[in-house]
Amino acid sequence: MNRDVAESKASSTTLDARASELLSRGRKDLAITRIKEIVIYVALIACGFFSLLITVSIIGVLLTETLRFFRFDEVTLSNFLGSAEWTPLLGETKSFGIWGLISGTLLVTGIAMAFALPLGLVTAIYLSEYAPRKVRDLLKPILEVLAGIPTVVYGFFALMTITPFLQWLHGGFNVYNAMSAGLAVGILCFPTVCSLAEDALQSVPKSLRDGALGLGGTRFDATIKVILPAALSGIISAFLLAVARAIGETMIVALAAGSRPQATIDPRDEIQTMTGFMVQMAGGDVSNFGTEYFSMYAVAFTLFLITLSLTMLGNVVRRRYRETYE
């Protein structure tokens, strides 16, 4: 009897020891898990703040270098904002009138949008409202492939195919001209407009569509009178994003639009855009730290402000629209 008690006591103590050992091991594991959890969370937060850091550094870099540009004696703010003469590379008569570049950008963007917006919207309407499933399955990958082609390829296409074609149509076209670059940028923006507009059309509730058709409207009536107005803000946002993309497009205009900044509305003539100027500066002698080098930052800052405001406007418009239907 006594022996039994002793034995059981002994076994219970070993049991206790084992239990507490297990417990402590569990506690240790738990502590390790907790530390791991915290470390990972901190790392993720660092990732999240990294994107904020990018924005801050873009603004910081562009702002400081632009200020340095304006500190040069030959540069005045009134000249920069008030003149359309952009001749930073002329030795004696340098003039930094940003409108000379902005007008080129606007001309190319205008041509591109005149091509991409109507075509993109109509294709989006077709894909969303009319197309049978088979056609959709064929067209969507084609649009994706078009969207995935690098811009330098479009630049080559503009210079080697569109420009000779335009020159064949009409003798007045320069080798480098705004029309060719604008059309190529339009082709580039077309898939963007199309897929964003289609998203907007698709997210109009089916009940609206059914209601319009049920009242005896044709598909065209339903599209024009009901679905388009309902998706309008989404479509406007798609347009704004496409415009921002066209303004920031670089390689096409660098190859096909030429390098003579001038305020013209003649699409046959050579122009230079903001992005084209930056490429010209960087492709040339960048170790030259003169005024013209820093003018690149001023142009970049202008470009950044324009595209950022367009993108933000587009996002705001789209968000407002989303709130209506969710």
Partner: peptide
């Protein structure tokens, strides 16, 4: 703010990233 920032960054022209 991070979310908004990301969608704005997606719209920045790549040439500006080159300058950065």
């Amino acid at each position: 703010a991070i979310q908004l920032n990301i969608s704005n960054l997606a719209g920045v022209p790549s040439v500006v990233y080159g300058i950065l």
